[in-house]
Amino acid sequence: MAATALAICGGCAVLFAAFALFQRTLYGSALCLLAVLLQVGAAYFLIGAPLLGLIQVLVYAGAVMVLLVVAVMSSPPQLNEPWAGGTAKWLAWLAVLAPAAELLSLLRAASGAPAALQRAPAALERQMAFLLFGPYAPLTEIAGLLVLVAALSILRESHE
């Protein structure tokens, strides 16, 4: 059952990513990206990492999407030709067809195999918190500093 839900989440994420590629307006692409990010968050829940799923929804689908929408609002509404070159649109179709073929072949291969979905115990997330604030504390501090510097840069940008 969980594997079926995971298949639906993955399929929807890939479908919306393909939709995003072919949107003419950046708003459309941003909304499709939001759908992809929510599907990936749901996949984290199903895989057995609910905390990461929550953080994915809060950070990506919340904060980053707001910034993206502000940037889209500041940009010109539409380009006459959004593609990089004359044949780019056909290459984009190829980029959609290749993952579709990959997904189909993997689904065929996966249907006969036994279910291997494992639920991570809550202890795993406690262990993760211990690692983040124990041995990996300098890395966590650096990541926090990075986010702070990024926030300061956008504050400076908006101040100007």
Binding site: A3, A17, L26, A84, P99, A109, A110
Partner: peptide, 27 residues
């Protein structure tokens, strides 16, 4: 159904589509 293959397929497809975005779009 093997969930590892599903995750592998979905993440590979997302990566290919992201790379296509990066290479083929102008904005």
């Amino acid at each position: 159904m093997n969930s590892s293959l599903l995750v592998w397929g979905a993440s590979g497809s997302l990566f290919i589509l992201g790379a296509a975005f990066l290479v083929l779009r102008r904005q």
